[in-house]
Write a protein that binds this DNA or RNA. Structure first.
Lengths: 113, 113
DNA sequence: GATACTTGTATACAAAAGGATACTTAATTA
DNA sequence: TAATTAAGTATCCTTTTGTATACAAGTATC
C-alpha cells in the first residue's frame, strides 16, 4: 500500500468513527436541543418532532458515554434530572453548522429540479 | 410556537435531511474514494475496507439518485462502467473535512482517558 | 380517593441497514 | 479448456433502529 493509500484509509476511518459517535437521525438534534435550553427529558422530547421515549433514552445514554452531555440529578423535592452539554460537546458546532447549511442547499436543489 | 422554536425545528429538519442523504458508515467514504481516482466498481470496493458488493451497489445507486455521482457506461470492448463525482458532489468537501478532523480529535480524547 | 404528571424502563414487534456467500454473463487470459 | 475479471444480483441472516404500549414510584391536582 502506498503512503497515499494509507492516508486515505485513515481518513475513512476517522469519518466512520465520527459517524459512529454522532451519526443517525437524532444525536445532533438532541445535543442542539439541550444546548438551546432544554434540560429535562420531556422538554427535550417535546422539542424534537417524532422522537419517542425509548429512542431519546437510548441516545442520551450513548451521548453521555461519549462525554458529549452530562446527566445531573438535582436533589430537590421532587428530584429532578437535568441534562447539559459538556464543553467537549460544544465542539460539535463545527460539524452541526455545515450539516445544516448543506441540508438547506440540498433541499433547494431537489425542489428546484 | 415562538419564532425561535420554529427556527430550531427547521435547523433539525435540515440536519436530518443531510443525514438521510449522506449519513451512515459508507456514503462519504465512497464519494471520497471516487473523488480520489477510483472510477470502477472493483477499484472502489478494494479501496474501502470491509465494504461488501451488495452494500456498495446500493449506496452507489442512492448517491446517483441524489445527484452526487454519475454512472457512465463506456462503450468499449468490453464495456466499462465508470463512476464520477458530480460538481454538486464536490460540495460535500465542506462536510467531509469537519467530520474527519472531529473523528481524529475524538480518538485522541477517548484513548487519552 | 382518583387521576394525572415526571422520568424514564420493559416488552414485543416491525422495518431498515448491514453482512456473508454464492451466482450470473460475457470477455479475456493462461 | 480452465481460470479470472468485471459489475453487479440473489438469497439468507443478523444487527440496528424505530414504533407501540404498558408500567414504575413519587408528587401534585381535582
Amino acid at each position: 500500500m502506498t503512503k497515499e493509500e494509507k492516508r486515505f484509509q485513515e481518513k475513512i476511518k476517522s469519518i466512520q468513527d465520527t459517524m459512529f459517535v454522532i451519526g443517525g437521525k437524532w444525536k445532533i438534534p438532541i445535543i442542539l436541543s439541550v444546548y438551546s435550553g432544554n434540560k429535562r427529558f420531556n422538554e427535550i422530547s417535546n422539542s424534537i418532532p417524532k422522537i419517542t421515549n425509548r429512542v431519546l433514552s437510548k441516545e442520551l445514554k450513548h451521548l453521555e458515554e461519549n462525554l458529549l452531555i452530562t446527566r445531573n440529578v438535582i436533589e430537590d423535592y421532587p428530584v429532578r434530572i437535568e441534562y447539559a452539554v459538556t464543553d467537549y460537546g460544544l465542539g460539535l458546532e463545527e460539524i452541526a453548522k455545515p450539516l445544516e447549511s448543506w441540508g438547506k442547499k440540498h433541499k433547494k436543489k431537489i425542489i428546484g429540479k
